[in-house]
Design a protein around this nucleic acid. Sequence first.
DNA 1: AGGAATCGTTCGTGAAGCAGCAACTATTTA
DNA 2: TAAATAGTTGCTGCTTCACGAACGATTCCT
Lengths: 169, 169
Amino acid sequence: MFRRVGRLGHMSAQPLDSSEHRSGALLDHLARRMRLRSESVLAPLGLRPRHLVALTVLRAGGGTGQQALATILEMDSTNIVGLLNDLEAKQLIERRRSPEDRRRHVVELTEDGAKRLSEAECALAGAEDEVLGALDPAERETLYKLLSRASAGTAVNCTEAICVADDAC
Amino acid sequence: MFRRVGRLGHMSAQPLDSSEHRSGALLDHLARRMRLRSESVLAPLGLRPRHLVALTVLRAGGGTGQQALATILEMDSTNIVGLLNDLEAKQLIERRRSPEDRRRHVVELTEDGAKRLSEAECALAGAEDEVLGALDPAERETLYKLLSRASAGTAVNCTEAICVADDAC
DNA sequence: AGGAATCGTTCGTGAAGCAGCAACTATTTA
DNA sequence: TAAATAGTTGCTGCTTCACGAACGATTCCT
């Protein structure tokens, strides 16, 4: 499951100067800042940050089963149920039984869901302006694309549908 | 299995519609994935993800008071105390009274702290490889720089209130 | 000097997120 | 038929975290 991390300094082929450039802590830091702001902005829409994450993933690779979704989001599947219950109660997603395997519930964004997601993203403009204030629009776009590709790439392991890279809306 | 959207080379014009390109959810998603992996990797070092965040911030702008640190990390100052207690017990940071204002505790990385931080970052290579597997080294470097600048930028302005452009959605 | 404000510290309280187990239904697969 | 899989529900417990109250030390205001 987890890649074994070798003892220090055993990699001779890699340039060592990138060893300090780990993005993990920075991701954590910025995600926290963003999440704190998002909560208050999203509240009027009846959404929480984690709902937005789920919706975003669903938009990227819709038509996934809940098990797959649990893997992508790395959440316990029992907790996924509650999350999806929220979203379904608001009619932002639909659960349909898969015709090929009727055990599965295929989860997909509804029209309302896509619309609400758009609204939410739009409402987050202010929050993002605060958190990413040091980056100009072009840099933010670059950041978005990198994050998007990384997110899609990691999802590849788990499911089938990935194709977010660059869509022109 | 892979639903492929062609248009690979067609980077036509500019992505002018950045309206939907909000990075918040993606940040959240990737940060979570990273954090889950980091925990197990960091455990042998006696660190947790949030410790790493604090150390990273301290390395970037050392010599800050705890109040300022609370603002940067956007954590309650009472919770900062416990966090720093952990780190001080491990002798990764030092609290000294500021000579100019002896109410303040100036927090700084010790040599051990910097070393441990480096080790931790090195140990996170595997985790990062998993989470950012879709990005090549150059892209990861770009990502790091963007995140780094964003983090530094928000830290600098944290004292002054940033006026947010009213969202016109 | 005296009083108010600030910084750090400790303690407690309460809410929220989340993992994990158990049991159940429906469905597929061997 | 038996076993495995997907989803659902309910429950338990741990951890994190924000928030408040009180306190000592120190500085700033007048």
